[in-house]
């Protein structure tokens, strides 16, 4: 069995910005073990000297002209900023990111 501990799950969940209750953490640890065990199967293969594949259709870097493809407009601003749960005028509002000393 892959040994993933509850502590590791807690750490990774925090990195992934997902809050877990103690119960959820325990359940998830139990679910992840067989999944990690299964995917570890690729360890049976001899991968020495094999290049990794990230792209499958042979395309290389794609560039475009460094110009505006979409004209800036207040209508677009409203469409986008209008989706934010909290806003102030045309700004997206967030909670404090710095703690007061």
């Amino acid at each position: 069995m892959s040994r993933i501990t509850e502590k590791e799950v807690e750490y990774v969940a925090h990195l992934a910005r997902i809050k877990l209750t103690a119960k959820e953490r325990e359940k998830l640890t139990g679910e992840l073990e067989p999944i990690l065990d299964y995917v570890n199967k690729i360890g049976e293969l001899d991968l020495a000297g094999v290049e990794p594949t990230a792209q499958v259709t042979g395309m290389e870097n794609v560039f475009r002209d460094d110009t505006n493809s979409i004209e800036p407009s207040l209508e677009n601003t409203e469409k986008l900023v209008g989706q934010a749960p909290r806003r102030k005028e045309n700004f997206v509002k967030v909670k404090s990111i710095l703690e007061a000393k």
């Binding site: 799950v9 990774v12 690729i42 990794p52």
Partner: peptide
């Protein structure tokens, strides 16, 4: 979704990237 996000964060995290993500990309080549 939470399960996959957490698995993916784990397989990309420091110390596990080579063992999981990079290896899986090589399997993709094979």
């Amino acid at each position: 979704v939470r399960r996959r996000v957490i698995i993916g964060t784990y397989t990309l995290s420091a110390g596990y990237y080579d063992a999981y993500y990079l290896k899986a990309q090589k399997v993709r080549t094979l």
